[in-house]
Amino acid sequence: MSGPLESLRAMTDDQLAAALQDLGRSVWFPPAPADLTDRVVARLAEAGSRRRSVVERWREAFGPTRALRRSLVLAIVALLIVVGLAAAVAFGLPGIRLIFVGATPTPTLAPSGPVTASPSAGSAASPTAPPLGADLAPGSPTTLDAARAAADYPVRVATDPALGAPDVVYLDGSGSLARVTFVYGTRPGLPLATGATATALLTEFRGAVNPDAFGKIIRPGTTVEPVSVDGASGYWIVGEPHDLLYRVPGADLWDPVRLAGNVLIWERDGLTFRLETSADKATALRIAASMR
């Protein structure tokens, strides 16, 4: 029994150190799960959005019955923004940090039961049933005109005849933070997205796509193909539902894709457009090119 013991005892400290180093390579360690970092990043992103939704909930607390207080708060916020802007201009501070309201995650796809699409363009559905896409689009139903009045950018809408006018228009936020979503119900010749009552979801907002992030957050089985949308650069994303990452001033934000379909995403004039649909690429590109 003295063999191994003697060989260990005979070692100098340096030799023992080298032996420990070598032993360390054979010691069993639990493997790090491949998605460990991704889970951490997802948790951090979630924590970031929760912080935003607290603001939202607080905002909701000032309901119509507290209209006066609400407008007071809005006035104070507006004043602060003006002061902030003035300070930024006066001191040449780099960009004001914007909180992108539209990026607050909303519940992902939940089949909404047999809601039939209202054919009348731009109007909300009946008061008894939730309007088409209420489970899919962020914000509240409104009209195209109201959305155009609220946003500080020219709101475009698809003019492709296969899609026609949207069934419901949703508006979330206002000014530069406005996010407009058009929901399209059943359309002859266009497939319904799996488990959904909508054919297409078309969203536009200020913000930029972060293409660097595609490779990291898109799950295996999903492909991202750079495409040209009527001269503008975009991406055609096919595969499993996934989150998309946008770059807004000061942060990267996750946003879930709501329809279980394909996504065409493109940028034009500082705006990001996103078309979620089960239609094929050619149809999606045609619809995208019809935005006026």
Partner: peptide, 24 residues
């Protein structure tokens, strides 16, 4: 440090193995 979560993920991903060993 400027809030880019993707960059943070890239930064720490390379250290997850040694981190697990350190913790273990």
């Amino acid at each position: 440090q400027r809030g880019d979560l993707v960059a943070y993920g890239d930064l720490v991903r390379g250290y997850q193995d040694v981190a697990i060993r350190t913790a273990y």
